[in-house]
Amino acid sequence: NQESVVAAQLIPINTALTLVMMTTRVVSPTGIPAEDIPRLISMQVNQVVPMGTTLMPDMVKGYA
């Protein structure tokens, strides 16, 4: 089963992602794949992401 990127903390809107903000977990439905974490660093979220929420492609500016 593929791991997806999950918020390790509350991420406010327009925050640039850092490694410490993200963790990985096997979730359903699947979100952004864990191997894309290096690509996500410094990208901004376009909404508030509560802790434990799976990051979906449409939540990250410039990802999709």
Rank of each mutant, 00 (worst) to 15 (best):
10 L>D: 13
42 S>Y: 06
62 G>S: 11
48 V>H: 14
50 P>K: 14
38 P>L: 12
4 S>F: 03
45 V>H: 00
31 G>M: 03
41 I>A: 07
22 M>E: 01
63 Y>I: 07
33 P>N: 07
61 K>I: 14
54 T>Q: 04
43 M>P: 00
33 P>C: 05
9 Q>K: 11
59 M>Q: 04
9 Q>M: 09
27 V>T: 11
15 T>I: 06
18 T>R: 06
31 G>A: 04
58 D>Y: 11
34 A>P: 14
45 V>A: 05
35 E>S: 14
47 Q>T: 11
44 Q>Y: 15
43 M>A: 13
49 V>Y: 01
55 L>E: 00
4 S>D: 01
24 T>V: 08
64 A>G: 13
49 V>A: 03
17 L>V: 03
16 A>W: 13
20 V>E: 13
59 M>K: 02
26 V>C: 04
57 P>Y: 10
45 V>L: 14
62 G>M: 11
25 R>W: 07
32 I>R: 01
58 D>E: 15
42 S>N: 13
18 T>N: 05
59 M>R: 02
7 A>S: 15
52 G>Y: 11
5 V>T: 05
27 V>N: 06
30 T>F: 13
11 I>F: 01
20 V>M: 08
63 Y>R: 02
15 T>P: 00
55 L>W: 01
4 S>P: 01
26 V>F: 10
28 S>D: 10
21 M>F: 05
24 T>Y: 06
23 T>L: 10
15 T>Q: 08
13 I>R: 12
62 G>R: 15
28 S>W: 10
29 P>L: 04
31 G>I: 03
38 P>F: 12
37 I>G: 06
39 R>I: 07
2 Q>A: 09
47 Q>M: 11
2 Q>V: 12
5 V>S: 02
43 M>G: 08
26 V>L: 14
64 A>V: 14
15 T>V: 08
47 Q>P: 02
9 Q>T: 15
15 T>D: 04
39 R>V: 13
40 L>K: 00
59 M>Y: 06
10 L>E: 07
19 L>K: 12
9 Q>Y: 06
10 L>R: 14
13 I>Q: 13
43 M>Q: 08
18 T>C: 03
27 V>W: 03
14 N>M: 12
21 M>W: 04
11 I>N: 00
45 V>Q: 00
31 G>H: 02
39 R>G: 08
48 V>E: 14
62 G>W: 08
22 M>F: 09
23 T>H: 11
4 S>E: 00
10 L>I: 08
52 G>A: 05
24 T>S: 12
36 D>Y: 15
23 T>Y: 11
53 T>S: 06
37 I>V: 08
2 Q>C: 03
50 P>R: 07
22 M>I: 14
26 V>W: 10
21 M>A: 07
55 L>T: 01
59 M>L: 05
17 L>N: 00
26 V>A: 14
46 N>P: 02
12 P>V: 04
40 L>M: 06
21 M>Y: 13
5 V>R: 01
28 S>L: 08
13 I>F: 11
13 I>D: 12
13 I>P: 05
31 G>S: 03
35 E>V: 15
6 V>A: 05
40 L>R: 00
37 I>W: 04
4 S>Q: 02
33 P>E: 05
27 V>E: 05
43 M>N: 12
48 V>F: 11
8 A>G: 10
6 V>L: 11
52 G>H: 10
55 L>D: 00
7 A>Y: 01
27 V>I: 11
42 S>V: 03
20 V>T: 06
60 V>Q: 00
56 M>Q: 13
57 P>H: 11
18 T>F: 04
56 M>L: 06
17 L>T: 00
18 T>G: 08
58 D>A: 11
18 T>L: 06
4 S>K: 02
8 A>D: 09
23 T>P: 01
17 L>Y: 00
28 S>R: 05
13 I>A: 08
10 L>Y: 12
19 L>C: 04
3 E>T: 14
32 I>H: 01
50 P>D: 09
54 T>F: 02
4 S>A: 03
54 T>A: 06
34 A>S: 08
23 T>R: 13
19 L>G: 08
20 V>W: 14
1 N>V: 13
53 T>L: 09
58 D>Q: 13
23 T>C: 03
45 V>G: 00
57 P>A: 08
60 V>E: 01
54 T>Y: 03
33 P>Q: 12
64 A>R: 02
9 Q>D: 08
44 Q>D: 05
15 T>F: 05
15 T>E: 06
25 R>S: 11
36 D>F: 15
47 Q>H: 08
50 P>E: 10
17 L>C: 01
6 V>K: 02
45 V>N: 02
45 V>C: 04
50 P>S: 09
23 T>W: 12
55 L>F: 13
64 A>K: 03
40 L>T: 02
25 R>N: 08
48 V>R: 13
3 E>F: 13
43 M>D: 04
36 D>Q: 15
4 S>I: 02
21 M>N: 06
8 A>C: 04
17 L>M: 09
7 A>P: 01
53 T>Y: 09
11 I>W: 02
64 A>Y: 08
23 T>N: 09
42 S>T: 06
20 V>R: 13
20 V>L: 08
60 V>A: 01
2 Q>E: 12
16 A>H: 08
4 S>N: 02
15 T>A: 13
31 G>N: 01
59 M>N: 04
57 P>R: 08
38 P>I: 09
38 P>R: 15
35 E>I: 15
49 V>G: 00
24 T>L: 10
19 L>T: 11
31 G>R: 04
58 D>T: 14
64 A>D: 14
7 A>N: 01
24 T>R: 14
